[in-house]
């Protein structure tokens, strides 16, 4: 099915009335819906609030319960493990790709340059995820 491709807190606009907008659809593609579901679990999107595994703002179990209520599709935390690992690989390669834009001269930017050194954070998280399994 169509997945958003960058579904995380930074791309969600909410008001007191609930969800307003979902931004940044440029990574939309056909995939398994669990790819989107697991993406906000990636540690990089917790912005330091590591104990709240869902984007640094919530727990995973109520999120999946609500998802099942709304879609009729039951997804377990267990199932999301593989997709969370994939999410970390995706963001690590994303960092390296951005860095390459700088290094090749396609788009010189100190931000892109520094992202090349950020990939190690996802490498460490991947080793941690493998170990914790």
């Amino acid at each position: 099915m169509v997945t958003h491709g960058d579904f995380r807190i930074g791309n969600v606009v909410v008001s007191e009335g609930g969800l307003e907008y979902l931004l940044d659809w440029e990574f939309a593609h056909l995939s398994d819906p669990r790819e989107d579901l697991a993406w906000p679990l990636v540690r990089a999107w917790r912005f330091g609030a590591d104990d709240r595994r869902l984007g640094g703002v919530g727990e995973v179990a109520p999120y999946l319960e609500r998802y099942a209520e709304r879609t009729g599709r039951a997804v377990s935390e267990e199932e999301l493990y593989w997709w969370e690992v994939l999410g970390n690989v995706k963001w690590a390669t994303g960092c390296l790709t951005q860095c390459r834009r700088h290094l090749t001269g396609l788009d010189r930017s100190v931000e892109y340059a520094v992202l090349g050194r950020m990939a190690a954070e996802m490498e460490y998280e991947l080793l941690y995820l493998i170990e914790s399994r």
């Binding site: 540690r43 330091g48 590591d50 050194r117 950020m118 190690a120 954070e121 490498e123 460490y124 080793l127 941690y128 493998i130 170990e131």
Partner: peptide, 24 residues
């Protein structure tokens, strides 16, 4: 392999972002 890689990546992080390791 796992221990060796972990130490290798930790050494990179001590340079790129030392605070990051505190998260673990």
């Amino acid at each position: 392999a796992h221990a060796v890689l972990k130490e290798h990546v930790a050494a990179k992080l001590r340079i790129s972002n030392p605070q990051y390791l505190e998260r673990y």
